[in-house]
Amino acid sequence: MNATERKPIEEIIQSLEGAETVFILGCKGCPIGCDTGGQPWVDELTGALEGAGKSVSGEALVDMICNKAVVGIKLGRAVLQLKQADAILVGSCGVGVQATGNIVARRAVPAMDTVCMGDYQGLFPSAERCAECGECMIAYTGGLCPITLCAKSLVNGTCGGTQDDGSCEVSPERPCGWQLIFERLEKLGRLEDLMRYAAAKDYRNRDITDANRRTIRWALEVSQEEEKEAEPIEK
């Protein structure tokens, strides 16, 4: 889930400068899950925009704006209203806003901020996080990720900032990741794992390789194109 927060209405009005007529597009995926979107949000926003002297040419709620095929079909029914609009105000995460801008030839303006929940959390939102570092080292850290658990992403053990209650120097509510790792390894009888030197990370892994960019791992539509090309050869 991509967590979102509503932007203040003043900020939205400001970012719509020059757009007299606006189309409102809301996502019914994650924003529903984190209680930021949905029909009440559309209604509230419509009122606010009209109050600010703008006109709303239409509105639509789409299950998942990141699914561009569905958005295309849904918006196909609103072509006229979209044509009238100077801008589309999108209530979704940043992915949805960009997807909208890539499908419709109109200014796509975000109505929400996507807030950090700390790296990839799996498709079912849970407490574990993965920083996609490309060199997984958690075989040696008790199965816990120091990149996401430690505030400084240290790879060679604790800093001097662990508080007496086991929290990190940055916040009493944040456990020290290396303290958690220590406790886990102690329980597993593997404290000697802490002695292993970990070289600094290779930051080339934090970018998408050209090879990956050409595959389904990068984007679904890439794989569709590849399949189209591949078919005749297989026959």
């Binding site: 060679n156 053990g157 604790t158 001097g160 662990t162 508080q163 007496d164 209650d165 086991g166 290396w178 303290q179 220590f182 404290l191 802490l194 002695m195």
Partner: peptide
Amino acid sequence: GANPEAQAIK
């Protein structure tokens, strides 16, 4: 500190 053993290992 809170965990001298972790400090010693480091």
